[in-house]
């Protein structure tokens, strides 16, 4: 009897066995269309050019390729590019947080102006920024002369490179932290204070963990932007091989000598490094996001 019943039920059931699919079922329509467009767009703009870059560099034989990318001059430029970018992003992490804090937490005269100024590094042609910074930071410049008094040379050293990269990266940290900071309820701080926490304990144990995901995002964006920066750095760095030559400039040099494959090889190295670093930062961010529940 039960066999018959179950057999009847089986055939009558309008629900077929769930098919294994790539995508989770969703009530939102248009998945096929939107993923198609997204893939097409990303391919045309990102994937195909990057694949082309890698293919081009593979025109070299392995020993040649290795010779190009492990050339001492190239290695020195990687060190400068990634080192200065890391330093610049770290500086922005601290001071970007302070700028965002001031803009969110206090009301003062000229706040809107400062708020607008933060975006300028986005808009300004980087060459203009480079020339302005160079003029300021040479040993005779307005700012540079004071450093020179302390025997510190800023322009035409790695320090100058870091200054330029800090300049262009600042908005990323400010703009990612600002909305999150504005969303933090004052109540949470009041709760911490009523439980006896000092100002510093409230900051380090309550506010900072809540801001961490957005700080990491800002750091990653600022860092990524700095790695690719070319325009502003070439003016302030002095471009001395082994000392103040960044990888993007080395690539330009190779291009000018019609060494396309060599340029592509260096580009691929930057691509791989950047990808690995950004992936690490994203994983870190994912982990911290998970803890706070988004």
């Amino acid at each position: 009897m039960s066999e018959i019943a179950s057999a009847v039920l089986n055939t009558a059931s309008p629900f077929s066995k769930p098919k294994k699919t790539w995508v989770k079922k969703s009530v939102l329509p248009g998945f096929g269309l939107s993923i198609g467009l997204a893939a097409l767009y990303a391919s045309l703009i990102v994937f195909i050019p990057l694949a082309g870059l890698v293919l081009k560099s593979l025109e070299l034989s392995w020993p040649d390729l290795w010779a190009v990318i492990s050339n001492p001059r190239a290695v020195a430029s990687y060190q400068l590019t990634f080192g200065a970018s890391l330093a610049a992003a770290s500086i922005n992490l601290v001071f970007g947080l302070i700028v965002a804090w001031v803009l969110v937490r206090y009301e003062f005269f000229g706040k809107r102006v400062i708020d607008a100024l933060v975006d300028l590094p986005f808009a300004l042609p980087t060459a203009v920024a480079g020339i302005a910074l160079t003029a300021l930071y040479t040993t005779k410049g307005w700012v540079g002369q004071w450093f020179w008094l302390a025997d510190i040379k800023v322009a035409y050293t790695w320090l100058g490179v870091t200054v330029a990269l800090t300049f262009i990266g600042l908005p990323f940290v400010v703009r990612t932290v600002q909305p999150v900071l504005a969303d933090l309820e004052a109540e949470v701080e009041e709760a911490a204070a009523s439980l006896g926490a000092s100002r510093w304990q409230t900051f380090s144990r309550v506010l900072l963990p809540a801001l961490l995901p957005s700080l990491l995002t800002g750091f990653a964006l600022s860092f990524a932007r700095a790695i690719g920066e070319y325009g502003s750095v070439v003016f302030i760095s002095g471009n001395m091989p082994y000392k103040t030559e960044i990888t993007p400039l080395l690539i330009m040099t190779k291009l000018e000598q019609f060494d396309y494959a060599g340029a592509a090889a260096l580009g691929t190295v930057m691509l791989v490094f950047s990808f690995v670093l950004l992936l690490l930062i994203n994983l870190l961010q994912h982990w911290s996001h998970k803890r706070t529940g988004g």
Binding site: E190, A191, A193, S194, P209, T292
Partner: peptide
């Protein structure tokens, strides 16, 4: 006296829990 030293327990309408803890 600062709220830190008043030794009051305060409960907020919207809980104000520390969400990363």
């Amino acid at each position: 006296v600062h709220v830190r030293e008043r030794n009051v327990g305060f409960v907020f309408q919207h809980y104000a829990l520390f969400r990363h803890m």
